[in-house]
Amino acid sequence: MKKFKLLWLLAAACSLTFASCNKDNDGPDTSTTVTFESAVLPDVGYINNTSYTEQGVTFNNVYDVQGQYMSAGFAVSKLHDKVTAGYTNMYSVYGDGGAAGSVNFAVCYFAEYLTNTSGVNDAYFAFGAGIERKMLNVMVNNGTYAYLA
């Protein structure tokens, strides 16, 4: 049962339309919203082999070149197949698209077995160097792969 619980967490698709602001709310509005709408997706409907940056926020991607698959991190997708079970549908969200009606969204995969040299899993997003932010919200939905498992 622990394995299935972990699978739900690992394969969750994130409709990551999130907003952040500067550390202190004293100054002008410096909020950032990432919708993934500026991503140009190929015919397959997802990008799974490169990190993605929008509005100064980078979403990492760990791609296994030999196996030809994303092993950890984020992929940008527009797939919302709610019927097909299994890993071949790992880039679909179990919803009608991204947050707030967006077409694109990020799919996050956290592979517990995959750690970098510091012992931290390679699934993260980051602001530019030296920029500190507070998260205002993150919208999350389950992935079809996890939901149907």
Score class of each variant (00 low, 15 high):
Val140Glu: 04
Asn61Leu: 04
Gly101Pro: 02
Ala129Phe: 10
Val120Asn: 10
Glu112Leu: 15
Asn104Thr: 07
Asn48Tyr: 02
Leu9Pro: 07
Gly56Leu: 12
Ala75Thr: 03
Gly101Val: 07
Lys2Leu: 15
Lys5His: 15
Phe4Cys: 05
Glu112Lys: 14
Ser77Ala: 10
Cys108Pro: 02
Ser51Asn: 04
Asp24Asn: 12
Asn25Lys: 11
Asn142Ser: 09
Gln55Met: 12
Ser77His: 05
Glu132Asp: 13
Lys2Cys: 10
Gly130Ile: 06
Asn121His: 09
Ala12Asn: 06
Thr30Cys: 07
Tyr145Pro: 01
Thr58Asp: 02
Ala123Arg: 06
Gly73Asp: 00
Val40Asn: 10
Val83Pro: 04
Ser92Met: 04
Phe105Pro: 00
Ala146Asn: 01
Asp96Gly: 11
Lys5Val: 15
Met70Arg: 05
Gly27Phe: 10
Phe74Ala: 05
Pro28Trp: 04
Ser15Lys: 09
Ser77Glu: 01
Gly45Ile: 08
Val138Trp: 02
Met90Gln: 08
Phe4Asn: 15
Asn121Ala: 07
Val120Trp: 12
Leu16Gly: 00
Thr88Glu: 11
Val83Asn: 13
Ala13Leu: 07
Met70Asp: 03
Phe36Thr: 01
Ala85Tyr: 06
Val138Thr: 05
Asp29Asn: 09
Lys23Met: 13
Phe125Val: 06
Met70Trp: 04
Cys21Leu: 12
Ser71Val: 07
Asn49Ser: 03
Thr35Ile: 11
Asp96Leu: 12
Val138Met: 13
Ser77Pro: 10
Asn25Leu: 12
Ala146Thr: 01
Thr58Glu: 01
Gln55Val: 11
Met70Asn: 03
Ser102Ile: 08
Lys2Met: 11
Ala13Val: 08
Lys134Arg: 14
Thr144Ser: 02
His80Pro: 02
Lys78Val: 09
Thr115Ala: 06
Asn137Asp: 15
Ser102Trp: 10
Val62Glu: 07
Lys134Phe: 14
